[in-house]
């Protein structure tokens, strides 16, 4: 019957709309959890995952020593040509020439944070760091030298 269908339609429509309003009304009255982050304010409490891939970083220990042998595995593994290793030859007291890094150049502007260099490194010399506020005003600042000045390779790392 037409009239009955009509009234059922109106009833169903109203009911479905009220169901939706009940849900939003529930969230309006139960305002406890906030899904957004108050980002610049929560810098101190912000906790990123340990594995978060922010930028490539070369850890140095307290003696200013790193574990990079200058083998160029990372340079080969990098799909974007982000890493450039300029190597030199150290001469040991015994007169043996040993390959070492002069500069580990890392171009952040070309990096896509894929992590393949870290994967490829045989001596775990480079890691991904958690930092993510990497903007600078001058793009030249994005070309970084990862080995600290005066640093040298740790003893025993081959």
């Amino acid at each position: 019957m037409f009239l009955k269908d009509y009234i059922t339609d109106v009833y169903r429509a109203t009911k479905s709309l009220l169901t939706g309003m009940k849900l939003t009304g529930y969230y309006f009255t139960h305002h406890k959890e906030i899904i957004t982050e108050q980002y610049p304010d929560n810098r101190t409490t912000l906790k990123l995952a340990d594995r978060f891939k922010g930028e490539v970083w070369m850890p140095h220990d307290e003696n200013n020593e790193h574990a990079c042998t200058g083998c160029s595995s990372c340079e080969i593994a990098c799909p974007n040509g982000t890493i450039k290793i300029i190597s030199k030859f150290d001469v040991s007291p015994e007169g043996k020439r040993k390959k070492a890094i002069d500069q580990f150049v890392y171009r952040l502007d070309m990096c896509t944070m894929c992590g393949l260099c870290v994967e490829a490194c045989p001596t775990d010399a480079i890691k991904m760091r958690n930092t993510f506020e990497l903007s600078v005003f001058d793009r030249n600042n994005l070309i970084k030298r990862l080995n600290e000045p005066g640093s040298k390779i740790r003893e025993g790392v081959e």
Partner: peptide, 10 residues
């Protein structure tokens, strides 16, 4: 503000 409270934000 009403929108924010309904949408679980500030």
């Amino acid at each position: 503000k009403v929108a924010a409270v309904i949408q679980i934000r500030l």
